[in-house]
């Protein structure tokens, strides 16, 4: 039969096509400057965070009181803080906290937001219940809600993650729901319904893949917001408790010595700006990448 003969080279055809599609994708990524720059800076941040124990010159808790508040020098590249601890080391370890909190919060709130948003878009009664709850959560300023939750939970890195997940999940659920509501009305969803698909297959097999790109874009912005919020919480004393370094509590400590030692405030601040900037660039780049209209124009 003819189909059997065709099947012999079907793998060949498949590989050729996949290669072609991959090549196109690579070109699309390389021509997207903000995506590339954002990803590179973020990658550097993540590397610093992961490798901190190996590349940091000192231990983050090593105190050297005679050398307190030393300006940047060959020995202490970024200077020392008010207890004589090496600032470079502390900033590197701070990146660990920030990257972990950002990643954990964006993943957790994406997962919960996706589940809530999808089911809300599909079932009317559930929609009213879930969306009124999330409206309620959105109505409270995020940082206040996080402070209240931290006050109840106590200061630790996991509690920061939990508190910020509660704060950011509603906004992801909103984004997912609003795209899912549009997609649910498309003819191709009707087509799988007509074929007899159940709710689970329609929701997860057909609607979910179509909301992933707005979700991913939103998740990168949540990543940035989570880093900022963690820093703010730690700055206010409601986040990571003091001896453990985080950009937020380094900044808080710098507040008292800012007239004598500018470097204690500037370097964690710069890191904070860089990481948030890189994530925003990445998010913008992803938006362009997923938007068919923009990519058509660039060609």
């Amino acid at each position: 039969m003819e189909t059997i003969k065709q099947k012999e080279n079907i793998n060949e055809i498949r590989n050729r096509l996949l290669n072609q599609q991959r090549k196109l994708q690579r070109r699309k990524i390389l021509s997207n400057r903000s995506l590339l720059i954002g990803a590179l800076i973020l990658l550097a941040m993540v590397l610093i965070a992961v490798l901190a124990p190996f590349i940091a010159p000192y231990s983050p808790s090593d105190m050297n009181v005679p050398n307190r508040l030393m300006p940047p020098s060959a020995q202490h590249l970024l200077g020392t803080d008010e207890f004589g601890r090496d600032l470079l080391t502390r900033v590197m370890y701070g990146a660990r906290v920030s990257m972990f909190v950002g990643l954990a919060v964006s993943i957790l709130s994406s997962v919960f937001g996706l589940i809530i948003g999808l089911y809300a878009s599909y079932f009317k009664t559930l929609d009213h219940i879930l969306m009124r709850i999330s409206d309620g959560l959105i109505a409270i300023p995020g940082i206040l809600l996080a402070i209240a939750l931290m006050a109840a939970l106590g200061g630790s890195i996991w509690n920061v993650v939990i508190a910020l997940t509660v704060v950011f999940t509603p906004s992801i659920a909103r984004v997912v729901r609003s795209s899912a509501v549009v997609i649910r009305e498309q003819a191709y969803i009707e087509a799988v319904y007509m074929q007899g698909a159940g709710h689970f297959r329609i929701l997860w097999g057909n609607i979910a893949p179509n909301v992933l790109s707005p979700l991913l874009i939103q998740a990168t912005f949540i990543f940035a917001s989570a880093i900022l919020s963690e820093a703010a919480l730690s700055f206010l004393g409601a986040g990571i408790p003091a001896p453990e370094p985080s950009w937020g509590n380094i900044l808080q400590a710098s507040k008292l010595v800012i007239n004598k030692a500018w470097w204690v405030a500037v370097f964690p601040g710069v890191m904070l700006i860089l990481s948030v900037l890189s994530l925003n660039l990445l998010g913008d780049g992803l938006r362009d990448y997923f938007d068919p209209h923009i990519s058509a124009r660039n060609k």
């Binding site: 191709y188 969803i189 074929q195 057909n206 179509n210």
Partner: peptide, 19 residues
């Protein structure tokens, strides 16, 4: 549903773009 199928009017919106 197995015995009855529909061919849609608009071939652009009736195929899932992600599949």
């Amino acid at each position: 549903r197995r015995d009855m199928q529909l061919v849609f009017q608009d071939p652009y919106s009736s195929l899932n773009p992600r599949k």
